[in-house]
């Protein structure tokens, strides 16, 4: 009976397992092999060569891309947390319970639009004759339109817009689970409002912040669209460089090596935040 139960269990799991192994694990393994291959002319030579990885740190446009990606991702993660926390707080504690779900739903509705459309919309706002320049000039704040599109500022703005919504969701989910008794107990024991927040509420909401921050890091560092549409080609991020290698140059080994580095960075972020993430609980 126990054996047949196990066997039947395998029967149910096998299709999903097959799909994951065939279309995720195997391609990944081949990508690792590809990153160790080299390209001579248009000929692909398989081997165990670390040349691609050496190029990443030798050639400044490659190591530069890694630095640009990290700078943008860390900036975006930090700004998004700082903006999202108060928003989640207000929705959780100031909006009447009846309206809470609706307000939260509306606050994250644009989250569900495609990256392409969302980045394009920011172009309307930030371009030379866009909404912001138009408004500032008619108010007389500036005489000449500001260059905002095709800058890092635009990339960061587009990203922050998206991730504020994501973080609001994860932090809100964390805040509403807290019993109000914690804050009451803290204030009864003589803590000021700020002290209660700093020493009681904030540590208790750290898991929500970290889950959101980790997701932000992963999605932000791997995104090609937002920097490509909003940042222009002045400075390239890692995904942009990967796409250049795939397209114009057909240099798959280098693209594979860059992807492995990208994964390495995500793994580091995971290890840094693993204490607060409970992915194994899923």
């Amino acid at each position: 009976m126990a054996i047949s139960n196990t066997l039947r269990g395998w029967g149910f799991v096998t299709p999903a397992l097959f799909w994951t192994l065939a279309f995720f694990v195997a391609p990944f393994a081949i990508m690792v092999a590809m990153s160790l291959a080299t390209l001579e002319g248009r000929e692909l030579i398989w081997g165990l060569d670390l040349a691609n990885y050496r190029r990443l740190f030798g050639q400044s446009f490659l190591s530069g891309a890694i630095i640009v990606s990290l700078q943008i991702t860390l900036t975006v993660t930090l700004i998004s947390i700082l903006l999202a926390y108060p928003l989640a707080w207000i929705i959780a504690f100031r909006v009447p319970p009846r309206w809470q779900r609706l307000v939260l739903l509306l606050a994250i509705l644009p989250f569900w639009t495609s990256y392409v459309v969302r980045s394009y919309s920011w172009l309307l706002v930030l371009s030379r004759e866009g909404i912001v320049n138009n408004a500032l000039m008619s108010l007389g704040v500036i005489a000449e339109p500001l260059q905002m599109a095709s800058t890092r500022f635009a990339t960061v703005t587009g990203f922050v817009h998206f991730f504020v919504m994501l973080l609001t969701l994860t932090i809100f989910a964390n805040l509403v689970q807290l019993s109000p008794n914690y804050r009451r107990a803290a204030t009864d024991l003589g803590a000021s409002g700020w002290q209660a927040f700093r020493h009681v509420i904030l540590p208790l909401t750290l898991p929500g912040i970290m889950v959101g921050a980790f997701l932000t890091f992963v999605l932000c560092i791997g995104d090609y669209i937002t920097p490509q549409i909003l940042g222009g080609n002045n400075e390239l991020t890692v995904p942009q460089v990967i796409m250049v290698q795939l397209g114009r140059r057909g240099d798959f080994p280098l693209a594979a090596a860059l992807s492995i580095v990208l994964m390495g960075l995500v793994t580091l972020a995971y290890l840094a935040s693993a204490r607060w993430l409970r992915l194994d609980r899923v």
């Binding site: 995720f24 990508m31 791997g222 995104d223 995904p239 992807s259 995500v266």
Partner: peptide, 13 residues
């Protein structure tokens, strides 16, 4: 936990 770009690139290869 893996970027879409990497999933796509692996399958493309």
């Amino acid at each position: 936990t893996v970027s879409y770009l990497i999933v796509g690139l692996g399958l493309l290869i």
